[in-house]
Write a protein that binds this DNA or RNA. Structure first.
Lengths: 257, 257
DNA sequence: CGTTAATTTGAGACCATTCAATTTCGGTGG
DNA sequence: CCACCGAAATTGAATGGTCTCAAATTAACG
């Protein structure tokens, strides 16, 4: 229900890259695969935005919404989901700080799925028109946005393989590998321990399993000394074996770009 | 193995919209969700391309390829697939005439999955640089391309729900609904009969099932008078019930744009 | 009309689900 | 600081949807 807990307006006083703009996170991430000039950076960081805190499971976007704004996660996690006709939930992706949560819905106009917050997160809300405007004006920012949506699509494809063709053990291991890998820079470590406040039910809905079977599968992975996962914290004890078990190959994350 | 059976060069003599350029198909499709000026149309149709025929199961793009060119399907079908570590195949999407087969790989640079031809298809091969050039130059064409990739991502999401959370019967019904729906304009009919030369193994790999179980499921759908599917031809005998069974809601195809 | 691919059928095994009950955990108020 | 609460995690047992394996039948094609 989108209640706003904190709400500030940030004005773009500086045309120089504001070293402490929250949008710096986006600049850093994009710099990995796009060369951005200092003008690009300045334009991005100069975007007006609203800070907003979301409660656990609060909707950030709701299926059917007309997109008017777009969020960048600053703290915490978010997830996309679709609900089937019988109420079955499938989680489509997880999002970590520094990622745009809704470029696709923003560009398509009508949300075909929902986005919710995992466990209390903070986001910068940007107006759709402002975003489209800098996309029109700055080719490199536009390219970065496009690539962002393409990378997401690539992750969807890998998840399709994961859910469609791998067994429970492999699915869970793969998901954990992906999350750890994507958060490497964020956490300063790939193997953890780091915060991952997902419930087993959420892991289940992301892998197309039941919570019960996810529980048993996690126990097996723990018993074998591959991972340590409890009270919202994950550590990968044996990356190589987990990667093997999870059939994980990071090519699809396109980090080489 | 990309052997070229027919090979012609088409030169862009006319700046006017060439009424019989094969790329007209793309223009028509894009016109559904982007307003294109006659200049846009002319620029697109003036693209140089090579006609190429592909054999059944021949690779159009191979995982790991560096993208140098991009194909538009003119006749026949194509599919994307990923292969898991144990050789399991997951089909990620099907592509019909008038669709770009590889915008994502083209834009990302390195193919993270393969594209193959279903059963003898013909495609217009366009160079990557030419495509990027008109994308830079014509904002509306660029927008259309972006939307194309976003629509594909939307389909991936729906498939994720399909494969992750629905039972065999629903999965198959949903897939058939989607294909019929997407080909409506192409076939002049939604309910068919129309050509759909997919093997049951391909349907299985697209829905995360085995060929055997796909067979039994198809038989059930036939027995109930919902569909007629044989020798590469599909007819939908009761759209409303099939849609119901398949939990199909076309919102995700964004035809309302 | 022969050869190969695709579809169909049967029976048994198994991975994951379902349902229900129990335990643990995190947070809250007394 | 402890008692309490609801949510999350865990356990057990039975069920079932889908898979596996193998063989038979049919269709496609030169």
């Amino acid at each position: 229900m989108m209640q706003e807990n904190r709400l500030h307006q940030f004005a773009p006083e500086l045309r120089e890259v504001p070293a402490n703009s929250p949008l710096e996170m986006v600049v850093q991430r994009w710099s990995r695969y796009c060369h951005l000039t200092s003008e690009d950076r300045a334009a991005l960081c100069a975007l007006r935005f609203t800070l907003r805190t979301f409660q656990r499971d609060e909707y950030m976007v709701r299926e059917g919404d007309i997109a008017k704004e777009c969020a960048v996660i600053l703290r915490g996690f978010a997830y996309r989901q679709k609900i089937g006709g019988d109420g079955q939930r499938q989680i489509l992706s997880f999002h970590i700080p520094g990622e745009f949560v809704d470029l696709q819905n923003t560009m398509l106009g009508v949300a075909d799925h929902s986005v919710q917050c995992v466990n209390g997160c903070e986001a910068a809300i940007i107006s759709r028109s402002a975003l489209i405007q800098i996309a029109d004006q700055y080719p490199r920012l536009r390219a970065a946005m496009w690539i962002d949506t393409l990378l997401e699509a690539s992750i969807f494809r890998e998840w399709l393989l994961n859910v469609g063709r791998r067994d429970a053990r492999t699915r869970i291991a793969h998901l954990l590998c992906e999350l750890a890998f994507r958060m490497t820079e964020l956490n300063g470590t790939r193997d953890g321990p780091f915060r991952l406040p997902l419930t087993q039910e959420q892991l289940a809905d992301a892998t197309g399993l039941t919570a019960v079977h996810t529980n048993r599968t996690l126990q097996a992975l723990r018993r074998e000394g591959l991972i340590q996962l409890s009270s919202g914290s994950l550590a990968i004890l044996d990356w190589e074996r987990l990667r093997e078990v999870g059939d994980f190959d990071e090519l699809y994350l396109h980090r080489h770009i």
